[in-house]
Simulated assay, not measured.
Amino acid sequence: MPAFHREVHQEGRQEGELNRARAIALKLLRQGMSVEQISLLTELSSEDVRALSEQDSKS
């Protein structure tokens, strides 16, 4: 596989993993889990989890 294709594939996989972590974080937020616990479990930053929480509360 050419280097360009490997790089694009890697970026796509990383984006997919991030989207999955955010989806899990949102489910945990809705179950009442704390931002700190979610951050620890999903490896998202506390700021990212808080932002998800704020976005969800606006929906």
Results as ranks from 00 to 15, higher is better:
15 E>S: 11
56 D>W: 07
36 E>I: 06
43 E>I: 00
39 S>H: 01
53 S>I: 04
13 R>G: 04
51 A>L: 09
6 R>W: 08
18 L>E: 11
8 V>H: 15
37 Q>D: 11
26 L>E: 11
35 V>Y: 00
11 E>W: 12
58 K>C: 01
27 K>D: 12
56 D>A: 14
40 L>P: 02
49 V>I: 05
30 R>A: 09
13 R>L: 15
50 R>G: 01
10 Q>F: 13
50 R>D: 03
33 M>Y: 12
30 R>G: 06
2 P>E: 11
50 R>T: 02
7 E>V: 15
14 Q>I: 06
30 R>F: 01
57 S>G: 01
32 G>I: 01
4 F>N: 15
16 G>V: 10
21 A>Y: 06
34 S>G: 08
42 T>R: 05
45 S>R: 04
9 H>D: 14
5 H>L: 15
58 K>Q: 07
45 S>H: 00
39 S>T: 02
26 L>G: 07
17 E>Y: 09
24 I>M: 12
46 S>A: 06
44 L>M: 05
55 Q>H: 04
30 R>W: 02
25 A>R: 03
51 A>D: 10
52 L>M: 03
24 I>R: 09
23 A>K: 09
17 E>G: 03
44 L>Y: 08
58 K>W: 00
24 I>Q: 10
3 A>C: 12
27 K>L: 13
11 E>P: 05
56 D>R: 03
23 A>Y: 06
3 A>P: 09
54 E>A: 10
24 I>E: 13
2 P>C: 11
40 L>W: 09
50 R>S: 05
47 E>G: 03
40 L>Y: 12
10 Q>A: 15
18 L>N: 04
40 L>D: 12
6 R>N: 14
39 S>L: 03
12 G>W: 09
4 F>Y: 13
14 Q>N: 08
22 R>E: 14
6 R>Y: 13
32 G>R: 00
40 L>V: 10
5 H>F: 12
28 L>V: 01
9 H>Q: 15
44 L>C: 03
49 V>G: 04
5 H>T: 11
34 S>H: 01
43 E>N: 10
35 V>D: 05
17 E>M: 09
27 K>Y: 06
7 E>R: 15
13 R>I: 14
6 R>K: 15
17 E>C: 02
16 G>C: 07
11 E>V: 12
21 A>K: 11
54 E>S: 10
42 T>E: 07
47 E>C: 00
42 T>I: 08
20 R>G: 02
53 S>H: 10
21 A>I: 05
33 M>Q: 08
43 E>V: 01
19 N>T: 08
9 H>R: 15
45 S>G: 03
18 L>W: 07
46 S>R: 07
6 R>S: 15
36 E>V: 05
27 K>M: 13
41 L>A: 11
40 L>R: 13
